[in-house]
Amino acid sequence: MILSVDGVEFSYSSRTVLRDIKFEVNRGEFFAILGNNGAGKSTLLKCLNRILKPETGTILIEKEDLFALSPREVARRLGYVAQRYESARFTVFDAVLLGRKPHIKWGTTARDLEIVRNVLSILGLEEFSLRYLDELSGGELQKVVIARALAQEPRVLLLDEPTSNLDLKNQFEVLTIVKKAARERNIAVVVVMHDLNLALRFADKFLLLKNRTVFACGGMEIMTPENIAGVYGVRVAVERLADIPVVVPL
């Protein structure tokens, strides 16, 4: 177990957004957080790396209490890719190098540059490395921010809707890379997703959020038509097509 969340509650001023959230994520796992718009998925993700501070509950990362760590120590353990990324006038290399920030003391070392080179090659971004971010397409930019989070060498990678602006090819490419990274690096990936079919295809474990709390959590077995209907309020069938599970609204 790499990440353990228990009894987490969060509210914006007086409005409760999350209550009694409890789940666990293992090494090498692709963990999908699913739920309606406004169910609190993004809020939950931000609580996991302390961008937002939950009122109660414990979050343990590799058995260490998240709230006892400094922001820099948190950033060394958890990489985060926000839903929106502002593309400033940075080259791709600089943007990925930024992922080394939690590890850098004053200047960059040869090791930092080597890690960046390696991550760029994993994501197939070598030829773009000296391009400016504002000259990239949406798919390329998404790969850059994921590369930055991987360069952070996190134990847990948090992604907020990484495929929402991507075409079909890029959706598959990005999620395949993320899944492979989770396996190879033996890290956990926690992904907020909207597309149930992508989630079924890539995730090992699912967390269904409804009414600000956990509706169900587990493997493929919880992705039943009943549970999905219960969370989204839409009647669905879960079928296998070419041996791939798919959700079809009825």
Binding site: N49, A75, G79, Y80, A82, Y85, V145
Partner: peptide, 9 residues
Amino acid sequence: GGEETAKGL
């Protein structure tokens, strides 16, 4: 890179 990105770092 944006406020949330910075906090994540």
